[in-house]
Design a protein around this nucleic acid. Structure first.
Lengths: 201, 201
DNA sequence: ACGGTAAATGACCGCAGGGTAATTAACTTC
DNA sequence: GAAGTTAATTACCCTGCGGTCATTTACCGT
């Protein structure tokens, strides 16, 4: 066995290692939550020891923050782009779902990071999370408001609630997808078309 | 001040204290999650010291278990009752929502306990939680399957996904309700009628 | 009066988990 | 090939938290 893991081995270059760690950490944070995740476990799952993680990311908060930006940055960019092509139709809503599925395809569990309730309530990562949450909420809100207005409802509270429901809907679809790893993003999109058809028809 | 909190005060009778503790604990568990919640904090928020909590509930798991039964028992009883009067109509779905709101009215945050992801994956409380989850899932599933079948779709996977979406929808409505404490259960029910009307109409 | 029991606490233990220091070995460069 | 840098580790510290013990005071039945 060459895996003696001897101290001092100049093995994997930093950038690559960081990617590995981030991938593992995203999954671990998503599954166990911020409070439940352990740095030692993350390190072990990445095949290295704890201090290296600290050397590269500084702290648990630092690592979480990095994961958050890694995940949310790409996702939001994708979603804000998709929003530009939205209209009032139902098909448009499903296309947004499609954008979510495709953006999440490389690492589905990522989604959970954005809304982890065991996150610290104050500090840098709370601010960052709130920022991303606000951006996704703004997307959902503008869509919901437009949708309701086009159907004659103008209540701000109703729009806010519909927005929350929409985000919850996305969330639950992603969660279901996580539990069914064999389904592709394309499968999910088709399924959504079917279901929407059934509910509305 | 009489709140010297002297040791030995035979103050509040056990049953009453347990209620106080449970109320605080449900909220704390709901907000911070199982992993994030601290027994000391729960004790302090209940106005007592940690050992008393242990004397009454044995362990963190014991306390969580008690909270879980406290919450889920009443809720499921209510929901299973409501299911008996369900049919294929949309109004029927909203009535189920109404049952949820009314059952949750005394302590809205309770809902989060059922699906806390930072819960231990094995052991008594995991079993109990899975049991309750299975019962709620069964409710949602039977409703979803009937709904889809009445509209010509028979895929088991589709039904499973719709069931997940339905539960997510309930979840997000409850979460929104939590963030808007001024809204009554009745308000929420009316709001749901309006929104469903807008989406379907 | 008085012994038993119930309510309640401060002080402690052990461990897990975040975080750090000191050190080692491989590559790079001149 | 010496010097510096980089990947990596072991061993440790400290705080916070789950959990326990011994003890104290108030009430209740006899």
């Amino acid at each position: 066995m060459s895996s003696a893991a001897v101290v001092g081995t100049k093995g994997v270059p930093r950038a690559e290692r960081e990617e590995q760690i981030i991938a593992v950490a995203i999954d671990e944070f998503a599954v166990r939550g911020y409070a439940g995740a352990s740095m030692v476990v993350i390190a072990r799952r990445a095949g290295i020891s704890k201090p290296l993680v600290y050397q590269y990311f500084g702290s648990k908060d630092g690592l979480y923050l990095t994961c958050l930006h890694h995940v949310a940055g790409a996702l939001l960019e994708r979603l804000e782009l998709a929003q530009l092509q939205e209209d009032d139709s139902v098909a448009s809503r499903v296309r947004t779902l499609q954008a979510v599925f495709e953006a999440l395809a490389p690492q589905r569990s990522a989604w959970q990071l954005l809304y982890d309730s065991s996150m610290p309530a104050a500090g840098e990562i709370a601010d960052a999370a709130r920022g991303y949450q606000a951006r996704t909420a703004a997307l959902a809100a503008s869509g919901s408001e437009r949708f309701l207005r086009s159907r004659g409802l103008g209540s701000a509270l109703d729009a806010s609630a519909l927005s929350a429901v929409w985000m919850g809907l996305v969330n639950s679809l992603v969660a279901w997808w996580l539990a069914h790893p064999d389904e592709s993003a394309e499968d999910m999109t088709q399924r959504c078309y079917r279901l929407v058809g059934a509910v509305l028809g």
